[in-house]
Amino acid sequence: MTDSAISIKNVSKQFGDTVVLRDINLEVPKGQVSCLIGPSGSGKSTLLRCMAFLEQANAGTILIEGEPVGFVDGPNGRRRQTAAELRRARSKIGMVFQQFNLWPHMTALGNVSASLRRVRKMSKAEAEAIAMRQLEKVDLKERAHHYPSQLSGGQQQRVAIARALALDPTIMLFDEPTSALDPELTGEVLNVMRTLADEGMTMVVVTHEIGFAASVGNKVCFLDHGKLLFHDTPEKVFAAPRNPRLEQFLDTYLDRGAFLVQ
């Protein structure tokens, strides 16, 4: 248990009457890549957002490296963390969004250095030096002074990854990082993620890129209708799907793949 970067216990979530997550239990091991797959509306993005407390689970607990995120147990039951407690809990997490969510009024360098300056209170020079190294890592040093609107989608997403890495997180959460990109640009983002995985970063990736999940993922979690149906190594999940629903889901991908090859 102590090896878990993220530990999810009995988490349920509903929006009004719609149940989105049903009693999820999941341990995300340190230094590994866990991929969340499943059809649209299966709750995989919601589960990821709950890990960052961008959504509040209605029940259950989520621990980030053993520390609760969002809610803490007090003498009178669970209470919401204060803003400062939540910031501390989140400080171990870097998050990458489907829509990149870069701040449009700042350059790439500004996006990556902003939190170092405002949150870590570094000097401009110090923050930009670190930001520059992060941009170099995602191969965008020459684009440092460009605004998001002057960058391609793939470049924007790589800036977003650099921005998340600047704060030195131990866990990276990716919410469909390539879903807004065309296939050509998807590759450059997946390559950056692959490098991160090779460096031993703990990653949770919500993705439709079954190929990425199969080749980079250490664990694959399959969600359907808010339930975690399957959680195992990619070999077991993809080679011999034992679950009929999972088999059906993967079939649609095989169909699509076959269609593309023709």
């Binding site: 960052a52 910031r87 870097g94 998050m95 829509q99 405002r118 949150v119 704060l167």
Partner: peptide
């Protein structure tokens, strides 16, 4: 867009920041 606010939250910005 709410996403820009969420990314600020995840970057550790306080509400005022």
């Amino acid at each position: 867009p709410i996403g820009l606010v969420e990314s600020a939250e995840m970057a550790g910005f306080s509400r005022l920041q």
